[in-house]
Design a binder for these strands. Structure first.
Lengths: 194, 194
DNA sequence: TTGACGCCCGACCGGCCGGTCGGTAGTGTC
DNA sequence: GACACTACCGACCGGCCGGTCGGGCGTCAA
């Protein structure tokens, strides 16, 4: 049952960290949510920071794996890649939020490992952006790097306002953001009313 | 000199909170950065949370005032509004980052006040978006609300990767983001190479 | 000279923090 | 019955936290 318990610890920690913030969450509180004592919690995890590192790495691992699969499968991967990124981020919401907001609380090697994974992922996306520019499907008046970072801004922070029970499904939001990013929010002049 | 000192406290606190996070920053550390003792610091501010509230309110006050002025002056305010928002956010970087990341650490009435200001600002932007939709300059296949939140995502989180000493000036980034949001990142099919 | 005021400080407080320790209870194996 | 292993726990630790208290020191006005 170790595996089950470890998973439960990680899920609960992700929810707690997202709701209260990493520094404001205590191991006592986490133990209480799990229905065990703090000393017992340390039987399952090495330290508080180890939990945070695991959450960061796992969220990046999942989004990287999924997006890489889309890139390898699709001929024109940009739009499906955008949609997949968003669907994964919304599915692993608490974990993803913790990675975005709290990875700065890691220190030393833990921090270095997470920063490296994040950089790898950014470069994966940037590679797609640059390729689409070369093939003339994406505008080239700006560098691939700021275009990539803008896209990731647009996507990543959606988890903080999206409401699963609202009018739009996750797939709806994914389509909308892909369309806004690629096609723009403005109506083309030719399509405007007189 | 009280005014000078209070300003210095707020500037220093904003930089510290952005660099280390609110919960991870201590009043001892802030006092040390200011070259005074902790007890003296409490002569100038009421509490740690009061500092955070002031930073949040002030950053929202500035961006709201500036953007409102643009809206009242311009006939087609959307593009200049986007650019102004970004310039203000980049100018008050530490304060703005603290507001975005740490306002959740406020409690009770302080939190309520900041949340209300944030909501006011969102509604101000949403009003512009909705107006542009009615006038046919903005696509209407999505609601004004998610279009607004997407735009704010795209803009707000830029402060975390923009490098002032880099190749692009703040005005360059502002123009780029306005163009990506309005015109899209894709090349129109008609403009693509054969 | 006196006293009010702004600015400063050392010493201290209770409380919560992450983490450790020694030990117990149950369970399955040989 | 002996052993090993896992899950569990109460009690405890040193350390840092936000915040307070009483008082010192210079300036300036009466």
């Amino acid at each position: 049952m170790t595996e089950r318990t470890a998973d439960r610890v990680m899920d609960t920690a992700a929810e707690l960290f997202r709701r209260k913030g990493y520094a404001e969450s205590s191991m006592r509180e986490l133990a209480e949510l799990l229905g065990i004592r703090k000393a017992t919690l340390y039987h399952h995890v090495q330290s508080k920071e180890a939990i945070l590192e695991w959450l960061c790495i796992e969220s990046l691992r999942r989004v990287t794996a999924d997006v890489r699969e889309v890139i390898e499968r699709e001929d024109e991967p940009l739009r499906p890649m955008i949609e997949r990124h968003l669907l994964v981020a919304l599915a692993d919401r608490d974990m993803h939020a913790t990675m975005l907001l709290e990875s700065g609380s890691l220190s030393g090697e833990r921090r270095a490992r997470v920063v490296a994974l994040r950089r790898d992922y950014e470069l994966l996306v940037e590679g797609v952006i640059a390729a689409e520019q070369r093939e003339g499907r994406l505008r080239s008046d700006y560098e691939a790097r700021p275009l990539t970072l803008s896209l990731l801004n647009l996507l990543n922070w959606t988890i903080f306002w999206y409401e699963p029970q609202g009018a739009m499904s996750a797939a709806d939001v994914a389509r909308m953001l892909a369309s806004v990013y690629l096609d723009g929010a403005a109506l083309p002049v030719s399509a405007r009313p007189g």
